[in-house]
Design a protein around this nucleic acid. Structure first.
Lengths: 228, 228, 228, 228
DNA sequence: AATGAATGAGCGTTCATTCAT
DNA sequence: CATGAATGAACGCTCATTCAT
């Protein structure tokens, strides 16, 4: 359905002149999109700042949106690789989740412009769903689900845990925090929130052996006590 | 600082012809923005569908973006009022949180176009931060913090609970779920997820009287240091 | 198949401001296209010379090509009407053909820019075939065929006369002469050629009662005398 | 004045690698120009289809228009040679004219792409007038005038015959028929029309010895004056 | 001789917005 | 109050052409 919007090879480890130019375009575009917004940014401005002609940008990317969509491709791939590597060294689903969240947050915090582009212009763009960049991102996200599934299987997490919900809570929280962070000019240290956040999640899903939900509306008897 | 991008009075309960026309514009715009995207949508299209001249739209709203920003004003006010009303009837911070989340989700689920506009075009727009609509939304969000603070005060929630983090987790999860929901064409029933989600959060912050971090195998003691 | 490329009504007898503006655009475009060529001409230039904004041109015409295609609409209609009127007054197919050719040539000679646009940019444009302007032109051309058919029917022209061929000869000659005329800067008086041209055609198709073709290769006997 | 837009030698009988490549470019360009139109066709497309780099095309032709103008050079030369050869074998101006028309039509019918390029993109291009290709074409056309002149001189054609008009009629008819033929996708057999067409012309100009204008009712005597 | 890579120069088209009525 | 008409201001994209190798 969707044509490939990127023209030439990867920029992960740019070796030749072509890849170096391509990377320069992507890096410049990331900055410009982040600072001025995707629609407000112009190819002309990116070209000027990258010291490359506008026409050359169209040599590498078929459209302005194609350029936008190519931004996360390599970054996400690298994050995925890093994640895969680290997860091998960690035991326990809980600790793995913590590592994943930390790596996500750390990656965004180290690349605020990339984080801004991802949170503000990619995550809410329907066209992005069909692109290579999104596939790369999905691979990273998939790791969360996998770890949760493993946690349930090993009995570390409760049997009734809904992996989709937990993944959504983790991703949603990250997205919310990072979005706030990029929209308000990056004042906070996001990494401080990783542990408390994971703590909450884990306590909510860890297998304690006894019925954890003694306060819910559905079990009115026990509820009355704990409710104020 | 807070620019006034709306020209004439409220549309909550349109009485006169002006308010009716204004409401028609907002409703049409909500639909059009939701279906076609903010930038892709044109004033001309909205005018045509609302059977009102383009020039008239500019009688009511100063700019296209002003029209966008006016969309959540009344809806958010109404949600806030409903919330306030319901919260009076509920005891216990946990139950109040559950009610808040339910009301948010319910409101979005009943107005998919509004939800789409909010999640896709307002929540990530820096200019929106300074508007009346955002104030209305913040009022609703403030309720979450208030309830969490109350929960901590009454001892229902753990003392060390970070209200900002918990609020971010709640909002982030809602935003993530609703965004997915609007981007994939509203297939799921979101309300089913309210209880499990709140359950996880509450278990993570409820005051049980004992050390909450009994699940970490790798750093049973060192935890306190590494978490910052 | 083809969308209507013209936006607003006729310019034949411009009454209101809109029609006057539209006519001004068409007249200016005719001049500019004629002098600079269709592809070389720019909307900007037409707008400047017509003292109308570029955007306004797009109010009246959907595309640059649509503007081109709208040039012959009214002119051809008027020519058709004139032709119809005159033909009523003339007896004899031969004389009618002469009148038609004269009116064509006269119309082109009086509007060299229009003639140039028609001959150089419309007659050879495949997209033009599906437009309103082409329909108007075809109506004029149809008259030729009709008159020839009548001539054959009344016995004024030979029975075996191929109307399509004769029409092609008439049109082809006109087109060739007018094209040369516009390409070389309109030096000649084309009307002088109308009579000789029609004379040749008529002599070739008039019904003389005896076999006219005594010289052709196919009848070698008689041929030898007249050849060389 | 006559700019040389071609860089290297003839392609009539390509011997060396250079000429073979050049011919391949011209043949491909003819096809592409014919199918997509001159302006719509791109050098890139021609290069791709000819399996030759764009830069190489510019080794052989100075500009895109120069490439277009070089298309008829060899073809017209060959047609001229063929024509010259055949005319030597034919007696009689009428038969020579027939042969010329037949050779023109036959040549176009056998090379529809070339015919299309000639009729649609060369014949109406003012810049083409100054080129080598046009000179070659003019040589062929000159033959028509020469034959007509000879016919008048030998008394085969009427004394008052206007050679320019007759040539225009012949060329115009051919152009009109071929243009229609290429624009409508080459459905007809054009050769069938050669004889009838020449018959009409010849009858219109052949010397019969008596007053030719016995058919005109309106101006039975005045004819001689009004004809140029 | 041949080409991959780079670009200068341009243009059609879109729309939010204004204004006269 | 309502609107039809007009436009200013941009911008993405294309491609013929050049140049270094």
């Amino acid at each position: 359905m969707k044509k490939n919007l990127i023209r030439k090879g990867s920029t992960a480890m740019p070796q030749n002149k072509t890849d170096i130019r391509k990377k320069k375009i992507i890096d410049t575009a990331t900055k410009v999109f982040s600072q001025r917004g995707f629609k407000e940014a112009t190819i002309s401005e990116i070209a000027k700042k990258a010291k490359i002609s506008e026409a050359s940008i169209y040599e590498y990317f078929l459209t302005k949106e194609g350029l936008l969509f190519s931004i996360p491709v390599d970054a996400s791939q690298m994050l995925f690789d890093t994640m895969t590597f680290h997860l091998k060294l960690i035991r326990g689903a809980a600790n793995k989740l913590r590592a994943i969240v930390f790596l996500f947050i750390d990656s965004y915090q180290k690349n605020p412009d990339f984080a801004a582009v991802l949170m503000l212009y990619l995550k809410h763009n329907k066209n992005f769903l069909e692109t290579e960049g999104h596939v790369a991102i999905k691979a990273g996200i998939k790791q969360i689900t996998t770890v949760i599934d493993q946690g349930i299987e090993t009995g570390e997490f409760k049997k009734g845990t809904n992996p989709y919900l937990i993944r959504s809570m983790i991703l949603g929280t990250i997205e919310h925090l990072v979005t706030n962070w990029v929209m308000t000019g990056n004042p906070d240290n996001l990494e401080e929130l990783v542990d408390p956040m994971i703590d909450v999640i884990i306590q909510g899903i860890e297998n304690t052996g006894n019925d954890p939900v003694h306060w819910s509306l559905q079990r009115p008897v026990k509820r009355e006590e704990s409710s104020s």
